[in-house]
């Protein structure tokens, strides 16, 4: 009895291992281009940067090993802390506000309303527009003397500001642009999530006499948590890496720069303007660790609020 069982198992294993080898070959062949490409263009560069963070790499590629010096300097660098704070404020404001607005618009559009397609198209327009063009037009709208925003405010007797050049407002102005340009994109994803919700839940709730608001919070939101999870993870990662908008909207010699520059911007400035690539690499390693931690927390807390059907 025992013996026979063992026999069939070995046969089985033999058969499998042939198939297995075949599987392995195909699998490695098929992942080869992407794996190789990612290794050459992304993973190797990452380790190279990691290495550089322990050197004093400056102009033109000469460097010497300096150990932890860059990291020590980083801890004492107020600019790094300020940049971290800026990045956190940017993320904490732009992501939740942006996502809430996206949910709101998606919910409004999901109420069997006429003109759904038109609205969706209009709201999505910023997502297909180049960040460079977006930054250009917003800078113009924000312009202190000739901007549309200040002239509208003036109608209501509100004093205009230098929205992107005043250190007190610049970061918030950038955040508004960030929200403006991502709401439509996230809305489309969330709306699709809502449209997949099964009617039956709602019918059951209607029998119980639930109102629109109750249905929204008790049914819709829980049902779309997987979508919301995805949107949140992606938005957080993107927000922590913000660069383009700040680079394009804030003048380099503005006093608002210190109050708006993100960690990635600081990296860019140290690496390309101040020619301190070693130190800049240390900057970006910190950012990497932060993003790693946030993503980890996100995935860990996933069970608490994300409901998969």
């Amino acid at each position: 009895m025992k013996r026979r069982d063992k026999n069939t198992r070995t046969r089985h294993v033999n058969h499998l291992s042939n198939k297995r080898l075949n599987d392995w070959m195909w699998a490695y062949l098929m992942i080869f281009p992407t794996t190789a490409g990612l290794f050459v263009f992304y993973i190797y560069p990452f380790f190279q940067s990691f290495f550089y963070s322990f050197t004093d790499l400056g102009s033109f590629g000469q460097y010497a090993w300096v150990g932890l010096q860059n990291y020590v300097r980083l801890v004492g660098d107020t600019e790094v802390w300020q940049a971290l704070l800026n990045t956190v404020i940017y993320t904490v404001l732009s992501v939740p506000v942006g996502i809430c607005l996206s949910i709101l618009i998606a919910a409004l559009l999901n109420s069997k309303i006429k003109g759904l397609g038109t609205y969706r198209t209009l709201y999505f327009l910023p997502a297909v527009t180049m960040p460079v063009a977006i930054a250009m037009v917003w800078r113009w709208l924000y312009n202190m003397d000739y901007g549309l925003i200040n002239s509208i405010l003036e109608r209501f007797s509100i004093e205009g500001r230098a929205w992107v050049s005043d250190p007190k407002f610049a970061l918030y102005s950038v955040i508004i642009v960030a929200i403006w340009s991502t709401v439509g994109y996230n809305m489309v994803i969330i709306l699709a999530g809502m449209q997949q919700c099964s009617r039956t839940y709602y019918e059951a709730a209607e029998i119980d006499g639930a109102g629109t608001i109750t249905k929204f919070f008790k049914i819709t939101i829980p049902l779309i948590t997987p979508t919301l999870f995805f949107v949140t993870v992606m938005s957080l990662i993107r927000a922590f890496q913000v660069f383009d908008t700040i680079y394009l909207m804030i003048e380099r010699n503005s006093t608002a720069l210190e109050r708006t520059q993100s960690l990635v911007y600081l990296y860019y400035r140290n690496a390309f303007i101040l020619h301190e690539k070693g130190y800049a690499s240390a900057n970006v390693m910190v950012l990497f660790v932060i993003i790693l931690i946030i993503t980890y927390i996100q995935f860990k807390s996933q069970n608490k609020w994300v409901h998969y059907e």
Binding site: R139, Y142, N143, M144, D145, Y146, G147, A162, V164, S165, D166, E251, N253, S254, T255, A256
Partner: peptide, 10 residues
Amino acid sequence: SPTFQQMLDT
């Protein structure tokens, strides 16, 4: 002169 901020904007 226009202020520093004005000149950053325009």
